[in-house]
Write a protein that binds this DNA or RNA. Structure first.
Lengths: 114, 114
DNA sequence: GCATCGTGCTAACTGCAGCTAGCACTATGG
DNA sequence: CCATAGTGCTAGCTGCAGTTAGCACGATGC
């Protein structure tokens, strides 16, 4: 599935941070937490609360649910969970022209097809 | 949408507990937490972590998501949503890296913003 | 009367999340 | 060569989540 089978929350966070090209301090400031604490979270020395995870998700511009699942406080897709299929949503977006849809879908496919 | 306009987490928990006809100690034991602490949570004196909420949800046989929303660590949104917001779906897609998300979002924005 | 069992609550402690201050290191560049 | 600005990390503290021990009050029952 995922290109990198990261199991731990800290490693996942670090990976996301680096892919977003943010330094520890930058992400910490954007998330409103201290940089030493973020460092400790990434190395698995401290485990953050849901509030912190929410703030980090915001700072990383990703959804909090993902982090909750990683942190083990949300079960991944238990009850008819709505994990919307991105391709379908793009295809159904009325704000896009057919051509734009195709570009986005092609780009998206190039990302997820490893 | 919600049948009962309970605003506070503690009151909501107490309500759920009483509807399940459980005493403080019973729910506390089923959830694996101490009864004084549960008492303080219900009266709003302490605010529980996500782990505790998860345990309480299990003890009450309700979904953790509801409690997370009450606790303000999850945005209510999702299930009532009719037309999913493309930007959000892209941002929440676990198959994408942060960088890829950014590219897609930027491209998407360039399409719809004009 | 007084055991005793159930209810929820208070008091007081422990552990750890999350903080501030500051260190060590590597560029840059004057 | 030293300044200074960036990186991540360690040390040490504070606040509060969550604990155990035990209190006060009502029911039941002998």
């Amino acid at each position: 599935m995922s290109p990198n089978p990261v199991t731990d929350l800290g490693g996942y966070l670090k990976e996301q941070r680096e892919q977003a090209e943010l330094s520890l301090r930058q992400l910490a400031e954007r998330s409103g937490i201290s940089n030493p604490y973020l460092s400790q979270i990434e190395r698995g020395l401290k485990k953050p609360s849901a509030e912190i995870l929410q703030a980090l998700a915001k700072g990383l511009r990703i959804s909090a649910e993902q982090l909750y699942v990683r942190a083990g406080i949300l079960d991944a897709t238990v009850d008819g969970e709505i994990v919307p299929d991105t391709r379908r949503v793009i295809n159904a977006d009325p704000l896009l022209t057919a051509k734009q849809r195709k570009v986005l879908i092609d780009l998206y496919d190039s990302y997820i097809e490893d």
